[in-house]
Computed example of a mutant assay.
Amino acid sequence: MRTQPVLFVSHGSPMLALGDSPYARSLAAFAAALPERPRAVLVVSAHWQTAGPRVASAARPGVLHDFGGFPRELYALDYPAPGDPALALRAAAVLGAEPDPLRPLDHGAWAVLRHLFPGAEVPVVQVSLPRASPADLVAMGRALRAFREEGVLILASGGLVHNLGRVAWSAPDGQAEAWALEAESWFLERIVDGRLEELLDHRDAWPQSHGAAPTTEHLDPVFVALGAAEGPARTVFDGWQLGSMSLRSLAWG
């Protein structure tokens, strides 16, 4: 079985789960180009934070519509992918985590997976995002890395720049505020150059850190991806929503 890549997706608004878009087509093209379909997906999302790691272990996890104020059609969406309880228990053992047989997939997971594998045929296991330092999140990714060799795709879902307090409601899709572009450029440059120490110290080293990530839950999944990854990163999609929400998505391997 082929080693699967690591994918970091900036998931943006839940509205991206609906319909066709350049974003959706880019994710679909990424999945279609894989030499071999993954046997399962391990996903870490910004929308399941816990004190310590947990792993969803249900055979049929179902979905959460964990948002409010959106059109009715968004709440009708489902993603009936199977779970993989055996993989979940192995991942929990590797991470020293608690299995959670009741946790459904949140929208940071299923809204992205709808575009990657629209048939919902690939088993999905969600791993929670611990409230931990960037260095500890990198270590978590490294602990999961070996699953890639078993045909498991590791998906981290968040956002390199995600500031709901500075959205520009009139900004056309694809356009960003100058401060947001500058912020993303700083972080992306260090990912590409492998300057991990600066990324780990982003609160002090990144001039736009607090503007790009007022709270870190959307940024944190990229550290899990960096730990699980090997080799250079490549961009899968480059775009923006509402001027302050990056849709930059990256793959390794």
Rank of each mutant, 00 (worst) to 15 (best):
G83M: 13
V224P: 15
A132V: 06
R142P: 00
T3F: 07
E73L: 11
T235C: 11
P5V: 07
V6G: 10
W179Q: 02
G83A: 09
A233S: 14
S244Y: 13
P82V: 11
F70S: 13
H47I: 11
F67L: 04
V138W: 00
A225S: 07
L144K: 08
H218D: 08
A225L: 03
D20A: 11
L102Q: 13
L89M: 08
V127L: 08
Q241F: 10
A17Q: 04
L113H: 13
P82Y: 09
L250G: 03
A251W: 01
H65V: 02
G141H: 04
I154A: 09
A97S: 14
L129Q: 11
V124F: 05
G62C: 01
G69A: 04
R60Y: 03
L250I: 07
A168Y: 04
A212H: 11
H11M: 03
G52Y: 06
G151N: 10
A135D: 09
A76K: 12
L7Y: 01
L200C: 02
G253D: 15
L137D: 02
D201T: 02
E149G: 12
A28N: 00
V167D: 02
P61M: 09
E36T: 15
M1W: 00
V127H: 07
A86M: 07
S246C: 07
L7P: 00
A156P: 11
W169C: 01
Q208A: 15
F223M: 08
L64M: 08
F117Y: 14
L250H: 06
R25I: 00
R39F: 01
L247S: 14
G194L: 06
A168P: 02
A212C: 14
G174K: 03
S13H: 07
S246K: 15
M245L: 15
P221K: 04
M245I: 15
F187W: 14
V192M: 06
Y75V: 08
G159N: 11
G211K: 10
M15V: 12
L89N: 04
P232G: 14
L155G: 13
P85Q: 04
P232H: 08
P5K: 12
H202N: 02
L18G: 06
H210S: 06
Y75W: 10
P101Y: 01
V222Y: 01
D173V: 12
